[in-house]
């Protein structure tokens, strides 16, 4: 596959189907793409696997940039459920708000949501990084296995329920913590990691020291009947 590093393409979803768009993005002949008139359509830019940049001028529906690999996708609007779900690598930026399950099960890459993210942000996260400029909804980081979630605003109820080894940083208030999720000391190692992540996400002006760290107490890692009431 040869990609013309100088070429740019513009494609309007008023004139083309999502299928036509994705087929073009799966075999790209240009490095930069602009998608017009997204109209909240689903699965826009899903399954990309090339070092290209895609800018979407407007709101998108479910699963935009789903399972992204290597590509950089920028949404100039809000997004529906499951933005960048199961992302493997690359970068996805949402200028507006995100619906539920943002970055669900993502293995790698960076997801930046400038606005708020709804419930279950980073659910079952498997290694990716998520930075939310606003607040996140309830049950976020549920069963999050690895990776990092940094929240510049507040977190809803039951944050990090049944969390494994993922790291969660919250700058504002946490409504409540889920089962086996506890506040942890913010060590220098974490300040450095968080500072570097915020920098990459365009929030380098924030002081990592203002965040609190949350993670697993690891009490529920191996089932014990005496813990049954904790679940």
């Amino acid at each position: 596959m040869s990609v013309d590093l100088t070429a740019a393409r513009t494609l309007s979803l008023a004139d083309h189907t999502v299928r036509e768009l994705n087929a073009a993005l799966h075999a790209p002949d240009a490095e930069r793409w602009e998608v017009l008139d997204p109209g909240g359509r689903h699965a826009i830019a899903a399954g990309l696997d090339a070092e290209i940049s895609v800018e979407v001028a407007g709101h998108v529906g479910y699963y935009c940039a789903g399972m992204n690999q290597r590509a950089s996708v920028h949404i100039r609007g809000n997004c529906g459920v499951g933005i960048a779900e199961n992302m493997m690598s690359g970068k996805v930026v949402v200028d507006g708000d995100a619906s539920q399950a943002a970055g669900a099960t993502a293995h790698g890459g960076l997801l930046v949501i400038e606005g708020n993210a709804a419930a279950r942000c980073g659910i079952s996260l498997k290694g990716a990084e998520i930075v939310v400029g606003g607040s996140i909804g309830h049950m976020s980081a549920f069963m999050a296995q690895s990776g990092t979630i940094a929240v510049c605003g507040d977190a809803g109820e039951a944050l990090g329920d049944s969390i494994y080894e993922a790291r969660v940083y919250v700058r504002g208030e946490v409504a409540s913590l889920g089962a086996d999720c506890v506040a942890k000391e913010l060590l220098e190692e974490h300040r450095l990691q968080l500072g570097e992540l915020l920098e990459r996400a365009g929030h380098g002006d924030l002081d990592p020291g203002e965040f609190r760290r949350y993670g697993s107490a690891r009490r529920l890692y191996n089932f014990d009947v005496d813990d049954a009431g904790e679940y």
């Binding site: 899903a46 399954g47 479910y62 459920v81 499951g82």
Partner: peptide, 20 residues
């Protein structure tokens, strides 16, 4: 983790088809 109910399932299947 990222869909609930048959309406969402339809969209999920659409995504899988698009990816493949």
């Amino acid at each position: 983790p990222d869909w609930t109910g048959p309406d969402d399932l339809e969209i999920k299947i659409e995504e899988l088809r698009e990816i493949t």
